[in-house]
């Protein structure tokens, strides 16, 4: 480590220290505002997909490129959410519009994945190896992203296409998770009505 002081990073602006942040249109709002709630959830989703991507690439299941495209779309979705539709300039709106076409593309991917999967005969549990599980985790975070985006869309602050994309994305992640398990030849655990009592204690003793 060099002894001299490093240059000040541009990363921390300190402007958010008072609990506010700014939107793309320059407006400042409290960080607890529903817009930041939605942006934060989309960001978490993007991170979760990042991990899933890492494992999918490792297993060479072919999902990695789709996941990257989705991550880029989530970036665009973030821009859409950060630009209140009823309070932004026309250029800003145009720059941050989210195209319906992405939803159709997702549906195409789902159809392809699904056609390679055995039909579901029972509830499955998040399982089936690392790639599959991380995709399930991303799926459950995707649902949260969708829930937090709803009030934003209802207030006309984000486009409805964003909501549709998030709804379809959790379906995609579900199909992708099953596909990843199948690709690695790993079994998915199925829901069984849990036993309680004596049998469970026997299991404990074996621990």
């Amino acid at each position: 480590m060099a002894a001299e002081q490093p240059k000040k990073s541009m990363l921390y602006t300190r402007t958010g220290d008072k609990g506010e942040s700014s939107l793309y249109n320059g407006e400042r709002r409290l960080k607890t505002d529903r817009i930041f709630e939605a942006l934060g959830a989309v960001d978490e989703l993007n991170s979760a997909i990042g991990i899933a991507h890492h494992y999918c690439k490792k297993s060479a299941n072919g999902l990695d490129e789709q996941l990257i495209e989705i991550q880029c779309n989530l970036q665009d979705i973030g821009s859409n959410i950060a630009t209140p539709r009823n309070d932004a300039s026309e250029t800003q709106l145009r720059n941050t519009a989210f195209d319906d076409g992405h939803i159709e593309k997702l549906e195409g991917w789902i159809d392809t994945l699904d056609s390679n999967l055995p039909p579901l005969r029972n509830f499955i549990l998040p399982s089936g190896g690392e790639s599959s599980i991380f995709l399930h985790q991303a799926r459950s975070i995707c649902r949260r992203a969708e829930r937090t985006t709803i009030p934003v869309v209802e207030a006309n602050d984000a486009d409805e296409s964003v909501l549709k994309y998030l709804n379809r994305l959790s379906d995609y992640l579900f199909a992708a998770a099953r596909y990843a398990a199948k690709f690695e030849g790993l079994e998915e655990n199925v829901y069984k009505k849990a036993k309680s009592g004596r049998e469970a204690s026997i299991q404990t003793r074996a621990l």
Partner: peptide
């Protein structure tokens, strides 16, 4: 977490949830 696809393989995406 899960869906159940019955005979005839309906699509995973029902679109019924698109309106929130």
């Amino acid at each position: 977490t899960t869906r159940l696809l019955l005979a005839g393989r309906p699509k995973i995406y029902t679109k019924t949830g698109d309106k929130g």
